[in-house]
Computed example of a mutant assay.
Amino acid sequence: MREELFVSGRNLPNIDPHLHAWHWPIPVYLFLGGLAAGLLFFASYYTILGKEKTMPTVVKWAPFIVPIALVVGLMALFYDLTNKLYFWRLYTTLRLESPMSWGAWVLMLVTPLSMVWVATYIKELIPSWDWKFPIIENTIEWFAKYRKVMAWILLPMSIILGIYTGILLSAFNARPLWNNSILGPLFLVSGLSTAAALIIWTSKDHAERLLFSKIDLVLIGIELFIIVHMMMGFMAGPSVQLEAAALLFGGAYTVVFWVFVVILGLLFPAALEIAELMGYKIPVAVPAIMVLMGGLIFRFVMVEAGQITRYLY
């Protein structure tokens, strides 16, 4: 057995000066969590407004993706855990100061609720669907009567889930690229934008697509504003944040961030959506896929670049 004694608190393998603990499952989890949060937000919001018939994709069909996204995201998170057999300990306590504790409890509530939401609409998608057992049938019918109650629960929960995906990073005070309060709102808006793009892609209703093209344009504008604000904060910060920002201004992640996230993931799809609103024939899948890919790449950039930044120089 090899024994090591650390006396300085510096040069800890995989932790200091560079963090090498989070790999591809984490950005995948953050992306799917943000996407699910956005879809649930729109579904619950338009249910509260009583728009189930005029917004069928938003309220009924797009939410079918939510349980799949959450389960796949949680599987990626579970895969990344070092001590997989002890994940249940997150649910033995609630620590209000811990973003991971908040996320664990919110996911435990949102995931089954999203499955119930989908179950109440499954017969509209598959008329021949049979639950086999009367008790299940009766339970689902009972929940169907209280969709608005579920919507009122899911609306704030989806906002918390979307913000949590960013706060999970910003809580790491030792990483300058993550250590800012704007990541929570940025990840929330990005999740809403990817959800809007997915709705545009899957909807067959022209009016629904046009409405969400407008919504996505607003969200892209807000996201760009927040990104600019974040960059200004870095540039006005201390030397460690200047060094962190340098990764995106001439550093290793410059091309990936500005070309694949900002230009191809935000500006270009926004231009295509504007052209569509002006009457030009634009394949809806093109801007939608670009927004989705931009959102995924954005999370990869933030997770990977953030682990390089540090306060030790």
Rank of each mutant, 00 (worst) to 15 (best):
S98Y: 06
A144M: 03
V256Y: 06
E304H: 00
E52G: 00
R147I: 07
V59G: 03
L81M: 15
L107V: 03
S98P: 00
R310Q: 12
I215F: 14
I263E: 09
G251Y: 13
G279E: 10
F64T: 11
P17K: 01
F298Y: 12
L211R: 14
L312Q: 14
A195T: 08
L5Q: 14
G73V: 06
E276W: 12
P27D: 08
K281R: 09
I122Y: 11
L107S: 08
G265L: 06
M230P: 00
E97G: 04
V7P: 00
V149Q: 10
I182R: 07
V66L: 04
G191C: 10
S114I: 06
A171P: 01
L32W: 04
L210E: 13
L155W: 07
E273W: 10
Y86W: 05
P156A: 08
L277T: 08
K53E: 15
R299L: 11
W258K: 06
P134I: 10
A246Y: 09
P17H: 08
G184V: 03
P25C: 08
I297Y: 09
I153C: 08
M115P: 01
R95A: 15
M115E: 06
H206C: 01
F234H: 05
I140C: 12
T82D: 13
F6H: 13
R299T: 09
E137F: 04
A244Y: 02
G279V: 10
L266H: 07
A195K: 02
E223P: 03
A174K: 03
G50Y: 12
F249L: 14
F31Q: 00
V291A: 06
W88M: 09
L49H: 12
A271R: 08
M278H: 13
F172A: 11
W131V: 11
M100S: 02
P185D: 12
L266S: 10
G38T: 04
V255G: 00
M302C: 04
F64M: 10
K214H: 11
G279K: 05
I160R: 01
A36G: 13
L94R: 07
A244W: 02
V291W: 03
L109A: 14
H18Y: 14
L32G: 04
K281F: 07
L30H: 02
A37P: 02
M157A: 15
P67V: 06
D216W: 00
T120A: 06
K84F: 11
A171Y: 15
G184A: 15
S101I: 09
L183T: 08
M235R: 00
Y146N: 11
L177P: 00
V291M: 11
F64E: 03
E52T: 10
F31I: 02
E141K: 13
D216H: 04
L109Q: 01
A285K: 12
G38Y: 04
W105E: 06
Y91P: 02
Y46F: 15
V116G: 11
E276P: 03
